[in-house]
């Protein structure tokens, strides 16, 4: 497979507004791709389409050769999405939340939450939730990692953690990252895109 992510003329509307308009882009397998753009430019929408959380209205995208419109099960098996929703159950603790996705012990230590593993999520701060979401993504062992604002709400240590994890995953998986940290990510990204008003610039 030459391109792990191949977006072909994808458009998506919310009500009367087109959030994405005829976006076409391709990310080679194993590469780290950066998608920049201001708030509301369609970054999250694109990642959510790639993760099959929402359907494109027009066009199609191939993830690992599978169509996000028709082969959603296969796409889901390959991808993991770090969304701006945490996907966590407030009433459960970190370990219980993660055990829905796999064996939690190793990753909890990896993201530095081992000490707080038994506390319910409702007592977590925003940064800790982000770390936990990160742990969830790692647990899914995805071939295509979709990171939506991975640096958001993290402390400087968290920033380093994200960088480390990305460099660990490089080569093993394809990474698509939507971020405002253009300079930081720009240093190590292989492919760069910029979205503006739902269109590729």
């Amino acid at each position: 497979m030459e391109f792990a992510v191949d977006v072909r003329g994808v458009s998506r509307r919310y009500g009367r507004r087109w959030a994405l308009a005829e976006v076409s882009l391709a990310v080679p397998t194993g590469a780290v791709a950066m998608i920049a753009g201001s708030n509301g430019s369609g970054k999250s929408t694109l990642l959510r389409i790639l993760a099959t959380a929402i359907r494109p209205d027009l066009g199609d995208a191939l993830v690992g050769g599978f169509s996000v419109k028709k082969e959603r099960e296969d796409v889901r098996r390959l991808t993991a999405l770090l969304s701006h929703y945490s996907y966590l159950y407030e009433a459960l603790n970190a370990r219980e939340n993660l055990s829905l996705f796999g064996d939690p012990n190793a990753v909890l230590a990896r993201v530095g939450l081992a000490a707080r593993a038994e506390d319910p999520i409702s007592s977590y701060s925003a940064g800790m939730r982000k770390r936990l979401s990160f742990a969830r993504v790692l647990l899914q062992q995805p071939k295509v990692v979709l990171l939506d604002e991975p640096y958001g709400q993290l402390d400087p240590e968290g920033f380093r953690l994200v960088d480390e994890v990305v460099s660990e995953l490089r080569g093993k998986a394809t990474i698509v990252m939507a971020t405002h940290q253009v300079e930081r990510v720009g240093k190590f990204a292989d492919v760069k895109f910029e979205l503006a008003q739902g269109r590729l610039r």
Partner: peptide, 16 residues
């Protein structure tokens, strides 16, 4: 309610 709070339901669907 618990499913919708953090969109946990969507997270489950995407595992898949």
């Amino acid at each position: 309610h618990a499913e919708m709070e953090n969109r946990a339901l969507e997270g489950l669907l995407l595992i898949p």
